[in-house]
């Protein structure tokens, strides 16, 4: 399953569906964000059918970024049934994301 690019409406719809969601707040002028892109692809593959993996461009969706208090990117928020349960800020190895997701899925 590919990584989804959310606008505000799509984000709301996905969050309303429930389940576990991992959202990467990013921007194209941010080098570390680009570095995280292959990690998101990998996670989308690893958790296919169990986690919705998506991205939000903070330039295109500033209100969404503000609502989630995004003050530094990359900023990855994990939601369960629409509620934030974990957050990983900055570039991190794949393992940190899988550990966080496994905790939420358990």
């Amino acid at each position: 399953m590919a990584v989804k690019h959310f606008n505000e409406a799509e984000f709301r719809a996905a969050a309303a569906q429930g389940g576990v969601m991992l959202v990467d707040f990013w921007a194209d002028w941010c080098g570390p964000c680009r570095m995280l892109a292959p990690v998101m692809d990998k996670l989308a593959g690893l958790y296919e059918g169990r986690v919705t993996v998506g991205k939000v461009n903070v330039d295109e969706e500033p209100m969404l970024a503000q609502r989630y208090g995004v003050m530094s990117i990359p900023n990855v928020v994990i939601l369960k049934d629409g509620k934030e349960v974990d957050r990983l800020v900055g570039v991190q190895p794949v393992r940190n994301f899988t550990e966080a997701l496994d905790r939420v899925l358990r």
Binding site: A27, W29, C30, G31, P32, V58, D59, A65, G69, V70, M71, S72, I73, N75, V89, G90
Partner: peptide, 17 residues
């Protein structure tokens, strides 16, 4: 407060401020 207002990179996070 790293990532919650503290940043090491102006060109990365500047736009958010």
């Amino acid at each position: 407060l790293l990532g919650r207002g503290v940043s090491y990179c102006a060109t990365c996070d500047g736009m958010l401020y």
